[in-house]
Computed example of a mutant assay.
Amino acid sequence: MSPEDQAALAQHSREIAKILHRNSPPEAVDTLEGIETTVRQQMLEHVSPEVGIFLSKRAPKPNGDAPGS
């Protein structure tokens, strides 16, 4: 990954974190366990589906391990 892409990813990740924090119940982020649980739930519910949709739009490249390769 290029340094520019790494910087952009870090910046966007911080923005995502701000949005998720803003939309978390205050009591959910009072403890390390609460933060971990809340982050995991929000990532699975909001972030992962968006990344999955983006990646699924790209045709998979065949690899040497697939049957018939």
Rank of each mutant, 00 (worst) to 15 (best):
E27T: 10
T38Y: 02
L32T: 13
S13V: 09
E27C: 11
E45S: 15
P49G: 06
E50I: 13
M1N: 04
L44D: 12
G68A: 01
G64P: 08
R58L: 11
K18A: 03
S2Y: 06
S24Y: 03
L9T: 01
F54D: 10
G34N: 00
S69T: 10
M43T: 06
K57Q: 12
P26S: 01
A28H: 01
G34M: 00
I16V: 09
G68H: 03
A28R: 08
S13N: 06
T38H: 01
A7S: 04
V29W: 02
P62H: 03
S69W: 14
T37W: 01
T31E: 02
S48P: 05
R40H: 15
P62E: 05
E4V: 09
K57F: 08
L20N: 10
R22P: 02
L32R: 13
M1C: 00
S56A: 08
L44A: 12
A66H: 15
I53S: 11
D5H: 09
Q42T: 04
S56T: 15
Q11F: 12
M43G: 12
I19P: 02
G64V: 15
A28V: 00
L44S: 14
H21I: 10
S56D: 10
S2H: 03
S24V: 09
G52P: 15
S24M: 06
G68T: 06
P67E: 05
L55M: 09
A7H: 08
E4A: 01
E45Q: 11
S13H: 03
E50K: 15
K61T: 14
P26A: 04
V47E: 00
A8Y: 03
T37G: 07
E4D: 10
P26W: 00
T37S: 12
Q6M: 08
A59V: 06
I35C: 08
E33F: 02
